[in-house]
């Protein structure tokens, strides 16, 4: 009926959060680097450490939520549940349908938002593991190189 509204609201919130995080990441960069790239570069505490900026990771969630909500909204148009005139949701016009619609938003809509966010959580976890593995490999390579240099 209107389950797509819940992930859409989450998408609005995460998009605003992404902008705020990106602004903070840009502010922490050296001025010339920020001006050159226009977006936060791969950052890290050590010179050799590569970390994906959090704003980019939030961007993945934005795409999942906006994309899913847009396609789901189209499905609702297809089934005649969303119309181009006020109140835009056919279920919102009738009080008994309105209760069913709110129930669906609270159950199906919230579950959709939670599942997408959980999937994004798994993506973050996988990215974290890959970053760690890559940094460890880089550190090993640096150590081998420095030992070889010390021997010669």
């Amino acid at each position: 009926m209107a389950c797509f509204i819940v992930p859409t609201l989450e998408a609005i919130a995460t998009t605003a959060a992404t902008r705020a995080v990106r602004r903070r990441e840009l502010a922490s960069l050296p001025a010339e680097q920020a001006a050159a790239t226009g977006q936060p570069a791969e950052s890290g505490s050590a010179k050799s450490e590569a970390v994906i900026p959090f704003s980019r990771k939030l961007g993945w969630l934005n795409k999942l939520l906006w994309g899913g909500s847009a396609l789901l909204a189209f499905e609702h148009v297809w089934h005649g549940e969303v119309v181009p005139w006020f109140p835009f949701l056919t279920a919102a016009a009738d009080p008994s349908d309105r209760a069913a619609m709110l129930h669906e938003m609270a159950t199906v809509g919230v579950s959709m938002a939670l599942l997408v966010t959980a999937a994004w959580g798994f993506m973050l976890l996988a990215a974290h593991v890959l970053e760690k593995r890559s940094n460890r490999a880089q550190a090993d390579a640096d150590l081998t190189r420095s030992q070889a240099g010390g021997l010669s």
């Binding site: 797509f4 999942l64 994309g67 899913g68 847009a70 789901l72 959709m112």
Partner: peptide, 20 residues
């Protein structure tokens, strides 16, 4: 990457719909 995330987002949402 953007296209695949769009489709994965929709797939996850329809999966919830299917479960209900």
């Amino acid at each position: 990457g953007t296209l695949s995330l769009i489709y994965w987002g929709a797939s996850l949402m329809w999966l919830v719909d299917a479960i209900f």
